[in-house]
Design a protein around this nucleic acid. Sequence first.
DNA 1: GCGATCAGAT
DNA 2: CACATCTGATCGC
Length: 637
Amino acid sequence: MSNVGKIKIKAIADLQATIRINVEPDPPPTTEKSTPKQKKAGRARVASTAKKIQPKAEACPIIVGTPFKRSSKKTPLPGQMRIDSFFKSAVKNYKVNMVPNSASKTVDPPLDKRKENSRRRKRLFEESTTTFSASTDKRDAKPPEKRVQPSRRAKGKENAITESDFGDIDGVTHYFLTHFHADHYIGLTKKFCYPLYVSPTTARLVQTFIKVDTTYIHEIEVDQTLVVNGVQVTALEANHCPGALMFFFKLSSGECILHTGDFRGSADMESLPIFWNHANIDLLYLDTTYMNKNYDFCHQSESVDRAVYLVRAFIEKNASKRILIVCGSYVIGKEKIWLALAKEFTMKVWTESNRSTAVRCLKWPDLDSVLTEDPREANLHVVTMGKISYPSLVDYFTLFEDQYDMLLGIRPSGWEKNSKPSYGKRISTIGIEYSEHSSYKELERFVRFLKPKRVISTVPVGRNLFVTGDVPTQWYKYEGRASMLSTGYQPSISAFLATPKRVATFSSDIEMFLSPVQENVSKGSKDKIPDHVSIMSSTMEESFRNESEIPVKNEPLGPESFPNSEIVAGNNAMESEIPYVEMDIKNETLDPGAVLIPCVPMEDKIQSTECNVIEVQKGEVVLVSRLASDAADDWLL
DNA sequence: GCGATCAGAT
DNA sequence: CACATCTGATCGC
């Protein structure tokens, strides 16, 4: 619950030091499980993989489950970099416009080739890195003319994507699945026999629904880094459905590739240390589902509020009636809406058995606590989205008309932007604008923030599913330095302070990630909230003095009180302003108002600057957060 | 017979 | 339209 409106990220030093670098084992031999064909392919791959993996174990430090104490930073482990040294090199790299070195060329397919292939892809399984040529999208590895299964394919639709396009792809040895939505795991079957990297949540779903042999499933958690065949793979929260990840690949050549999977971009993502530690992203695979100016969604918490508001109004207006509420959903996704309704109106929830199974896989206690097996004891039913139409609901209502007088159907969807509620005598439906993909603005901001060298959309446009969208080049080919290191960047914290919080609504046990920026709210609150906060003096807390929500200690502690204060904020604070970074400080006791000294980049030098502890929760410091929306507005001019 | 795959529907 | 399935038909081991 406390994660709503903010994300739990680790300070850069924390990330650097706690980075769990594990060397994954080779894909197990596939002998018994595979068909003859697979066997052959599998063996070949194992052989080549084994060759590659060996030297890597030497080159990379292996720190498995090493508990990290910030104070131990004095001796950075090999391969780790302190924030200050990072920024020095990063700035330098940027200036010389470094290109990936040639070291990887010998083993890796050329990037251009992958690009070529990737241009034809819909987003499905995730692209890996060149060292092990992992893409899970068959089209990436097999040009159309090489495809087998002519019998059905030949019948016309050249552009159609079928399951034969996915799954076992020639030359691909490692697979990354961002999340458990059906259009992303096409081709994944029980017989799958390659390493598959997924979040723990997705792992449970894959095991439960597809019954992939657990031998092949490798879990990677949010913010965790694994080394796979010499490629550093870091999982990032995607802010999509439960368990959804983005994958950040750093090749041995230094080349960085981010695959967003399906995601909803958020200003919080701009605080992710990995982006600050890797200012140069060579290639971005981007979910451009709503890359159209017409799509401008409200924050999810607003959607939830609206759903609650409309349902309350409906209930009050029909106070004498027995009302069945039916909410549309996918197998996973949209839980926040129905959970909020269940809690707000103290309703039990019944859902179809497949979703019920899926929900159990989520290990989200709040969801479990409201679910019931018996539809007749639940006033809230969660059903597949397709059933939330008037004719379907009429049918549905007949099943329960002995128990209810009215039925209210709810459609939470990005497409419900301007839909009007339809109130009938017995059957009513309302649409709730609710998106788990980025809005146009969120996309633009995300791309501008990352300023990758190249962007490839993963979402097809039009009829030809092999053609994906064109991301506006001005989003990333603009003058100046990468936005993360931009000298012109002047973030403020006002939007963060104005972020509406729905603290009580969501589970505390599952880290739900909500993008907190709500532009109009922050604008409307400008009177109350300081536009900028000086962090150069220890009198910073003055800025908050009138902000009742921000606890302030009168006597700010000096930096000498924090011997470990080199846990630096990953930000580019310039001059007198600093973006927030939420820091996770478990081993220190800090009070609100305390002053920390983060190192921040100033041109090519590192300078220290002070920042305030704004909020403390459970021994964790919530402080300097992300880049504020005001700054983004400037970019978007 | 059943899992995998496909086309089409919502 | 389509966000992501879902269904019913067909293929093929």
